[in-house]
């Protein structure tokens, strides 16, 4: 099923405040486990997909 809402980066999740910035909502977390959990919840809520940028930043993208 497809949503009509906008595509693009919905949110960013990271432990390091220096890595991110910009327009999308940013969620700071304190551990890897928390990052996983927050990412999963956000993904289910926004119907977006979690992507790992490899530098500790997760982004939620709606395709």
């Amino acid at each position: 099923m497809r949503e009509n809402s906008a595509e693009g980066v919905i949110a960013m999740i990271t432990e390091d405040r220096n890595l991110v910035g910009g327009g999308a909502p940013i969620f700071y977390v304190s551990s890897l486990a928390e990052k996983e959990r927050v990412a999963q919840y956000l993904s289910r809520i926004t119907r977006g997909m979690v992507h790992d940028l490899g530098n500790g930043v997760y982004i939620i993208v709606r395709h």
């Binding site: 996983e36 990412a39 490899g54």
Partner: peptide
């Protein structure tokens, strides 16, 4: 390969969640 889901040497997508 890292977060990249591969079937043999073809990249399918970037999967962020460890559980997934």
């Amino acid at each position: 390969t890292g977060p990249l889901l591969m079937v043999e040497d073809i990249v399918i997508m970037n999967v962020g969640l460890e559980t997934a």
